[in-house]
Amino acid sequence: MRTSLRMTGTAYANAKVAIYLKDGDSRRSLVLVGMAADDVPELATELRSRSPSEEVDATFMGMGITDTSDFPAGSLGGILRCGRTPTGGGAACAWADGSVLGMALTPLSSDVVSLGATTLALRNAAEH
């Protein structure tokens, strides 16, 4: 996955990537990708020139995510938006504020509501 991210551009080369499997079952996987403006100069430039909403929209456009809905972003602010993958079999959420961009994906589950709640909990834990 890291190789694939590097191929999309230098901004993703320093992304933090984690893949979680529930009970070792790859059909129940969760992929997290996060970047901080302090680590990625290109992201810092983007976050200064675009709103968090525009940053998430640009991220989703590049991924082909459609049918999006906003979810509560929590006390950290910014935006948290989720939608379905182009094949309709998966879901993705992305959050952004003035200093970070993060994404959570469930490649084989299209339960956007559940992923939105999980993404907020993970964001709160990661950015505390």
Results as ranks from 00 to 15, higher is better:
residue 1 M to K: 07
residue 1 M to L: 09
residue 4 S to I: 11
residue 5 L to V: 07
residue 6 R to G: 13
residue 7 M to R: 15
residue 10 T to A: 13
residue 13 A to M: 12
residue 15 A to P: 08
residue 17 V to F: 05
residue 18 A to G: 05
residue 18 A to Q: 05
residue 19 I to Q: 11
residue 24 G to K: 06
residue 24 G to M: 09
residue 25 D to M: 14
residue 26 S to E: 07
residue 27 R to W: 13
residue 31 V to G: 04
residue 33 V to F: 01
residue 34 G to T: 07
residue 35 M to H: 00
residue 37 A to N: 10
residue 37 A to S: 10
residue 37 A to T: 01
residue 37 A to F: 02
residue 39 D to S: 13
residue 39 D to V: 01
residue 40 V to K: 12
residue 41 P to T: 01
residue 41 P to K: 04
residue 43 L to D: 01
residue 45 T to M: 08
residue 46 E to L: 10
residue 49 S to F: 00
residue 51 S to G: 00
residue 51 S to Q: 00
residue 54 E to T: 01
residue 59 T to C: 02
residue 59 T to Q: 08
residue 61 M to H: 10
residue 62 G to A: 10
residue 63 M to Y: 01
residue 63 M to S: 10
residue 64 G to M: 03
residue 69 S to R: 15
residue 73 A to I: 08
residue 74 G to C: 02
residue 74 G to K: 07
residue 75 S to N: 05
residue 76 L to Y: 05
residue 77 G to R: 11
residue 79 I to M: 02
residue 83 G to F: 04
residue 85 T to G: 09
residue 85 T to P: 11
residue 85 T to Y: 02
residue 86 P to S: 01
residue 88 G to F: 02
residue 90 G to L: 12
residue 91 A to W: 02
residue 92 A to R: 06
residue 93 C to N: 09
residue 94 A to P: 10
residue 95 W to M: 11
residue 96 A to I: 00
residue 97 D to Y: 06
residue 101 L to W: 07
residue 101 L to C: 02
residue 103 M to W: 09
residue 104 A to D: 02
residue 105 L to S: 12
residue 107 P to H: 08
residue 112 V to N: 05
residue 112 V to M: 11
residue 112 V to A: 11
residue 113 V to S: 13
residue 113 V to C: 08
residue 115 L to N: 06
residue 115 L to V: 08
residue 116 G to L: 10
residue 116 G to E: 14
residue 118 T to D: 12
residue 119 T to L: 09
residue 124 N to F: 07
residue 124 N to Q: 15
